[in-house]
Nucleic acid binder design. Structure first.
Lengths: 218, 218
DNA sequence: CGCATTATCCGGCAAGCGTTGGATTAACTG
DNA sequence: CAGTTAATCCAACGCTTGCCGGATAATGCG
């Protein structure tokens, strides 16, 4: 199970060019393992093996196991946050441009979000684990997840204020949409399915759902 | 952390009336712990303490840890299956009675399903864990989860054949609805929220969503 | 060069894990 | 009553876990 991308090194201080590299490799390997099987099911030795380093090296770079998990969590949600913020900025401009443009921007943002999640299934996995065990993720929740949620909800509220939306319970709507998207990603990863058909049907469902709730785009 | 409901017993063969009791207590305690924190995060000694018995007693009744997990899984999904099957039987009769009656029955079934899940949050937790780690639950999936899914999808298809539904992708619709319901339950358990408001808004959302997809009930 | 710093690995420790064997106690059975 | 069966606990085994001290090696600095 050793990583082919990074052969085991020998002791000694490496060149500066590869100094920060190991930490990234460890975080990537740990994120994949934690997302797939959960923190408790994965030992530090397995993470080290997947990263091609020793156990002590993992601890040296990331501290305790809880800190390693936090680092993985933060890295994943920082990427998700970046995507949503960029889309939200564009959508807010569209709100000023008129109701129909706001609705169009909302559709685009959701499409973009689905694309992003399809590329990184570990994001969905960590989301679900956070939902399952809110106590464990309490601090991480306040720092990353809650702002993400507020962002999307704020966007919907802004679009509604622009006159394009009639949805009276954006809170529930946002949550249900996000969960539907995550369900879609999980289904994509399920073996034995037909990803192409799955993608086509889900996009159609999402489009028709949004039309039903908010009216068809211009 | 000892269970108050069941004080620790002394050795010796108990009366026949209470013979099967211990196994149920162990399963209940284990289900709650597994659902809340995951199988790997909970030790058998913790399960035993929560049930008020010794570790060896747990093993004696439920075999290995994997078998204990399977038993919890089976018990939870058997209850869910029973609820859905009863509702589905009623809904099928309604399909024969006409399109409007079928639609009404579908609404009732979903309402009933939400009620059931709200009463047993561990059902949702186990569903999510199954989605997160399909490999681990592969066998359990075929025996319990897949039939459940097929049941709801078949019901939707029957209603559509009756002329009341126009949804062309029942597969995606079913999955998204189920996920939305689970999201609702998770949100209910989140501390700091307002359960009453949450319930009201989610019911409203669900009702309007179904109306949008399938038309308003008679 | 000589010294401090840094990154890495090796070995081991204490604690916890799932599991098992055997002793104990009490209800059934004839 | 004697013998069997069933349920429970205690103690311990072998293994794995997260973590840490110490040795090693190579860089950067003066």
């Amino acid at each position: 199970m050793a990583a082919v991308t990074m052969p085991r090194r020998r002791p000694g201080r490496p060149r500066r060019s590869e100094t920060r590299d190991t930490r990234e490799v460890v975080l990537t390997a740990a994120t994949a393992l934690f997302a797939a099987r959960g923190v408790d099911a994965v030992g530090l030795r397995e993470v080290a093996a997947a990263a091609g380093v020793d156990v002590a090296t993992v601890s040296h770079h990331t501290g305790t196991k809880a800190q390693l998990y936090d680092a993985c969590f933060a890295r994943v949600f920082a990427a998700e946050r970046a995507v949503l913020q960029a889309g939200a900025a564009r959508a807010r401009e569209a709100v000023d441009a008129g109701p129909q443009q706001a609705l169009r921007a909302l559709h685009d943002l959701l499409d973009e979000f689905v694309d992003f999640l399809e590329d990184r299934p570990e994001t969905t996995a960590l989301w679900l684990r956070r939902w399952l065990e809110p106590d464990r993720h309490a601090e991480l929740d306040q720092r990353y997840a809650t702002p993400l949620y507020d962002l999307v909800e704020e966007l919907l509220a802004a679009a509604a204020a622009g006159g394009a939306l009639v949805e009276p319970t954006p809170h529930v709507t946002v949550r249900s949409l996000v969960w539907a998207v995550h369900a879609h990603v999980v289904a994509l990863a399920t073996p034995g399915g037909s990803p192409a058909r799955e993608r086509r049907e889900f996009r159609a469902f999402l489009s028709r759902l949004l039309d039903a709730l908010y009216g068809p785009p211009a």
